[in-house]
Design a protein around this nucleic acid. Structure first.
Lengths: 289, 289
DNA sequence: AGGTAGCATGAGATTTATGCATGCAGAAAA
DNA sequence: TTTTCTGCATGCATAAATCTCATGCTACCT
């Protein structure tokens, strides 16, 4: 019976033309020429066998049938659009829980690439300040650091922390080699200094050789201090890569790298955007390794 | 912001797939392959950044997001379709008022050509039995016969009635020429016989020469009688053309044609389908002339 | 009277949708 | 268990819809 199926796109177009009252304006609104609009409206009218507009050479006006049809379908079209938009918003929001340091030093600087790859996605970052703070229910993904040997449960590996000693290049040029250790103060970024202790145990350096002058409670603050030349520190590659490639920090190749722990994540949502984000951060983490 | 505009057609497709729960079935419903459906659904999902279906290799199932979206948009899509369908029905119905004879002999046999040219249109024919009967308010177009000299008012010409004497070929082979007149009885189809009187006045045949044996109150009945060989009659070309080309009737070329009146119409609606129909019957009438 | 704005239309280019061939894995059947 | 069958995904070639551009038209403005 029906030779061609009704094109809802054409109906949508019709509502725009009816609302604006002008082919030209409608064309500008959706970014095509008035010619395209004219063609399409005409086609719709032909398919439906109805004239929606009376054409004078210089303008168009809705017919009665056009008016009625507009009243009927415009709300429905608007509903569908709103519905789709809401979907786009709700479904594409990815809540990421991470430490401030990781967010500032790695996640946020990389986000523009994610946005480029998945334009729909909107990432919301929740930074729990302390490493062990509780993860909120609005987070779809959580990332946190695990010390070596710590129980990882169902957390998946993001990147191992194979830290090397990093230091501002200014400090490096005065002294070189293992002799640096007693001269340059180490920056302490955990209360118990477990990372330095573990590092010492693995490299054979006696912990007593180290001098600690500054202590910070976040890696981010510690890194700022390190860049400022206040001392050397153990920087997870994930956090230091940018500074290193930019030349603001240098790695000491004197000591072999020590695996201190790992960054791991859990995914708590099956939503498409969340899965995409997980896949993406894993790729991104690979780059650093 | 929005890279490509939301395709309402795709949303429509989604509702069908969601309803049927199968790409294959949905494809059959709209007459395309499941491959096409798959491509399009995937594209919609990509554009919206949402997964509507979970795919196992052998089947699909709505996700939560898909369910919600379906609940929201399906009624809107249905509304638009119903709205358009109603429009098609209402706007494309053409009510034609005409005499039974004209309807049966000319209009109805031609209608299939009109349907072919304008598939949307639905023609409703109202036959007022008597020529002068009142025209109902549901008629968009009225066609009626005007005697020569009658006031035509605002009725537009459809076709002049330049009648010739027609007769069944069986009667013709026995006698020829003007001699036929006294031998073959004339069929009377108007109470006052004005048509034969006018014809006699114009051709110079004395009215007294005619013999009238049968009288009918409609042209249609008279034509039936004529074809059956009951006599000769004055047949408006519009009504007799088919019978003549089919060989069921022959025109007497002995007498020059006489313009007895005209078929005329009025259009009482501006609707597109009605205008199309008027244009079409004028063309159709031209063919006969 | 001349100029401008807005729409229609035809032809060609481009974007989008479709079909086909093929692959794959789960479900049903043997 | 093994085989077959069914339904979906996907790359590529093709068909169809859509767009643009060029052009023409007429009402309206100056």
């Amino acid at each position: 019976m029906q030779k061609t199926r009704l094109s809802l796109n054409a109906v949508h177009l019709f509502t725009i033309v009816a609302r604006t009252g002008s082919l030209t304006v409608a064309g500008e609104e959706i970014g095509v020429t008035s010619s395209a609009i004219s063609h399409r409206i005409k086609k719709l009218e032909d398919q439906l066998g109805v004239s929606f507009f009376t054409r004078s050479n210089n303008s168009i006006a809705l017919t009665d049938a056009g008016k009625r049809f507009f009243e009927e379908v415009a709300p429905a079209v608007a509903l569908i659009e709103r519905s789709a938009d809401a979907l786009r918003r709700d479904e594409n929001e990815v809540g990421v829980h991470a430490s401030t340091s990781l967010a500032v030093r790695w996640l946020i600087p990389s986000l523009d690439r994610f946005r480029a790859a998945y334009p729909n996605a909107r990432v919301r970052i929740e930074t729990g300040l302390a490493a062990g703070s509780q993860i909120g229910p609005t987070a779809d993904i959580a990332i946190r650091y695990f010390r070596a040997g710590e129980q990882t449960g169902d957390w998946d590996i993001l990147a191992p922390d194979v830290s090397r000693v990093v230091v501002a290049p200014g400090l490096l040029k005065t002294t070189e080699g293992a002799a640096i250790l007693p001269k340059v103060p180490a920056i302490q970024c955990t209360r118990d200094n477990w990372d330095w202790r573990l590092w010492c145990a693995n490299t054979g350096v006696p912990f007593e050789c180290m001098t600690f002058t500054h202590e910070f409670d976040t890696d981010d603050a510690a890194l700022h201090a390190c860049v400022a030349g206040l001392g050397m520190m153990l920087g997870p590659p994930l956090l230091t890569r940018r500074q290193i490639t930019a030349g603001a920090l240098v790695e000491l190749s004197t000591f072999s790298p020590v695996e201190l722990g790992s960054y791991r994540f859990v995914r708590r949502s099956d939503r498409r955007a969340v899965r995409q984000f997980c896949r993406w951060i894993c790729q991104e983490a690979q780059k650093v390794a």
